[in-house]
């Protein structure tokens, strides 16, 4: 086999390999999520975020408009400080929007649902959401249910 043909075949092979890597990066992985680093960040404090993770989706009306970018613990108020990055095309969210932590399906992933408020002003970079609702922890729910059951039966 002559050199030219060899080199062309090897060139095609390397191109195909790089193309496959490129496809894995662009089409299979979440590279385009990393790229949406524009947008703005807001924070929200929750009493309990159990199950929420960095990169969990943030939705409004069921549409994903951002992601959780950071989770920290405030050792003075004993609350979780969640940073949310909203994509830049959603600029007109009311300032008094509220955030709650929901579960997708019965055992699914946790996500933050935002509900719009009525304020004329819009959320800006580093704004803080004042109205938040914590995530439902199944054990707490069950123990509350059991407690109420026990209370009722002891009343009799």
């Amino acid at each position: 086999m002559n050199t030219r043909k060899t080199e062309i075949l090897v060139g095609l092979f390397i191109a195909a390999g790089l193309l496959a890597l490129f496809m894995l990066a662009m089409k299979v992985s979440n590279l385009n999520v990393y790229n949406s680093d524009s947008g703005y960040e807001i924070t929200a404090n929750f009493d309990d975020i159990s199950g929420l993770k960095i990169k969990s989706p943030v939705t409004m009306a069921g549409v994903r408009i951002g992601r959780v970018s950071d989770i920290q613990f405030d050792s003075e108020t004993f609350e979780a400080v969640v940073k949310i990055r909203i994509e830049s095309q959603y600029k007109t969210l009311p300032k008094d929007s509220s955030a709650s932590i929901y579960t997708a399906g019965l055992l699914g992933e946790k996500y933050i649902g935002l509900e719009p408020g009525g304020d004329e002003e819009n959320l800006q970079q580093n704004d803080k959401l004042k109205l938040t609702q914590s995530s439902l922890v199944l054990e707490k729910l069950i123990s509350r249910f059991v407690d109420s059951f026990v209370d009722k039966s002891s009343d009799k």
Binding site: F13, I14, A16, G17, L18, A20, L24, K27
Partner: peptide, 15 residues
């Protein structure tokens, strides 16, 4: 050089 390229092609074709 070839091995990672082959593995990437394998995964991409598998997907």
């Amino acid at each position: 050089i070839s091995m990672p390229l082959l593995a990437a092609i394998f995964s991409a074709v598998g997907v």
